[in-house]
Computed example of a mutant assay.
Amino acid sequence: MIPLLICDDSNMARKQLIRALPSDWGVSVTTATNGHEGLEAIRQGLGHVVLLDLTMPDMDGYQALAAMRAENMQAKVIVVSGDVQEEAVRRTLELGALAFLKKPADPLELQLTLQRLGLLGEPSQPVALAPRVESTAISFQDAFRETVNVAMGRAAALLARVLGVFVQLPVPNVNMLEVGELHMALADAQGSDRLTAVCQGYIGGGIAGEALLLFHDSEIADMAQLMRIRDSDYSDMEMLLDLSSILIGACLSGIAEQLDIAFSQGHPQVLGAHSGIEELIRINQQRWKKTLAVEISYSLEGHNIHFDLLMLFTEDSVERLSRKLAYLMS
């Protein structure tokens, strides 16, 4: 039995990977939820082959790869990530990964990669799972967070190409919020800075909501410079609308593709400073008594530029999303 380690903070992602493994590959599977746990498992001899995520709390995949190199660990690492930026691929291979696969891993692509790297060997007995790997139920929040994680990575790859930067990705936050909590979350996102917000509605397959992209006013000039805007007729507001279309559109497209639905999107609108966000909450108070809130905080490496994407799904959408996610995992 080959000791195989799957290192990913998402229970759903770990199960998806286990299902994608060749059925006659003789491996014993151990799982880890962050880089620290992964390194400890490798030290214990439980990770001859490692399937490693990049975006994890506490210690991410980049840090884990760097630590493996520093300790001269002989683990054979294949990165499986939703962060599909060209620079992410380059960095992981430079840090010692043998291959890079995008999430969710395609079983055939995984098999061909294992074959190419000489890791499959002869057909053997089926995959052996630790009992805890088999029994843990996947929560709605975990499943949807992983779906958003994949979509977020695709949006970042598009943004990275447009701006010529490396986009640093967080673990997305997924929470059910009452309207009062949503108000506090937006106030917290603002901090002491003035914000400009772009709002865009979406609906499809019984799922509806609003996306809010929050820009810090003090960073808008730097973003315009990154986009190499020299046209005096092209205003900052037009630039923010264009950036919003890229990010919101790519995120929605990534979610829609995984859930097999199609979203219709409204026209993005600039809400202005924080008063505009207050007005949005006031208008939608009845519809948003409770909302499924997804928060993604993007930042650009080497630049003091950050923006927060909030995707606010109506309470009625949650049941439909739950059914779609259950089908995805069946």
Rank of each mutant, 00 (worst) to 15 (best):
V179M: 12
V167K: 03
L163K: 05
T196D: 02
R154F: 05
S218Q: 14
T147P: 01
R154L: 02
L212G: 03
I220M: 07
M152R: 07
A143V: 00
N173V: 08
I229D: 10
V198T: 02
A189T: 05
P131K: 09
S218D: 12
A189S: 14
Q125A: 13
L129C: 06
A208T: 04
V133Q: 08
L195N: 00
S124L: 10
S139R: 05
Y202N: 02
F215W: 01
L169P: 00
Q200N: 03
M223P: 02
D188N: 08
I207Y: 03
G153D: 01
A211D: 12
A189L: 10
Q225F: 06
P170Y: 03
A187N: 00
N173H: 12
A185G: 03
T136V: 15
F166Y: 15
V167T: 00
T147V: 14
L213I: 13
G209N: 00
A151H: 04
V174Q: 01
A151Y: 09
E146T: 04
P131H: 08
D217W: 06
C199W: 12
F166Q: 04
A130L: 15
Q141C: 10
A185M: 11
P126W: 11
T136W: 11
A137N: 06
L158I: 12
D193H: 15
F140Q: 01
D231C: 05
A128Q: 13
C199H: 13
M227Q: 14
C199F: 12
N173C: 09
V179S: 11
Q225E: 11
Q125Y: 14
H216D: 12
V162A: 10
Q225V: 10
E178T: 13
L214A: 02
A155F: 04
V174C: 04
I203N: 03
E178P: 02
L177A: 11
L159P: 01
G153W: 01
A221S: 14
V127H: 00
D142N: 07
